[in-house]
Write a protein that binds this DNA or RNA. Structure first.
Lengths: 110, 110
DNA sequence: CTTTCAAGCCTAGACAGTCTTGGTAAAGAA
DNA sequence: TTCTTTACCAAGACTGTCTAGGCTTGAAAG
């Protein structure tokens, strides 16, 4: 009955989404699948986290969206990275590497 | 005026505190100092995060507390890791390593 | 001795991001 | 027709951190 820890680290989802969009536009669920796949199934993105994150990113101007049609012939909203989004991705990655370095220093200390 | 990202990764503070107590008991501010020092000043722990975290950990039975006197001759509450706390530390560390591996896989993907 | 400062503990409330749970619409299969 | 799957969306709960205060007390400064 142990409480499960979440599948994500709070605050990293934006970065992961931006990364998933690095090369191709993708639609919402496609982004979630992509993150799960790239992480070798370690990470899972719930829809209730995904969509709010997408709106955040769009509101910040880091991604843009337009309606299209998915591989399965369903209507789907495709998101694409903007150039500001690329900069943001780089910044978040830097921050992530810095902080995790700090944490690893603590964890590996005696 | 860029919004600063926090000094901590949400959800890691408990683990860091447990780690800081691994060898010696310490009092609250001493724990915060220890984390900052071990992380080479990358991480900072605000008091408003620290004390709630200590109560959480105590309530879970992962640490115990007793009043004592600090090096500066002030009264201070000293916290000590329990054996359940050690197990918890190991579990959280495993979880952390697993999730960060997932994130790194995504970030390093093409 | 009185004032100031720092150490140490503590709390309330705001806030942000994720999760749970629910829903809708439409394509294709049975 | 009904059912399943894909895809999007929203409301509210929850959790952990941060901001901004406040209290007490020992020591140092004047």
């Amino acid at each position: 009955m142990a409480k499960e820890k979440p599948d994500l680290v709070y605050g990293t989802l934006d970065m992961l989404i931006l990364k998933a969009l690095q090369h191709n536009p993708r639609h919402g669920l496609g982004i979630a699948d992509r993150i799960q796949q790239m992480s070798q199934d370690i990470l899972r993105v719930e829809q209730g986290s995904l969509y709010p994150a997408l709106y955040r990113l769009e509101a910040q101007g880091w991604i843009t969206a337009e309606w299209g049609v998915s591989d399965n012939n369903r209507k789907a909203r495709y998101y694409k990275l903007t150039s500001a989004g690329r900069k943001q991705l780089a910044a978040e990655k830097d921050h992530w590497l810095r902080i995790t370095k700090g944490i690893d220093l603590v964890l590996s200390g005696t």
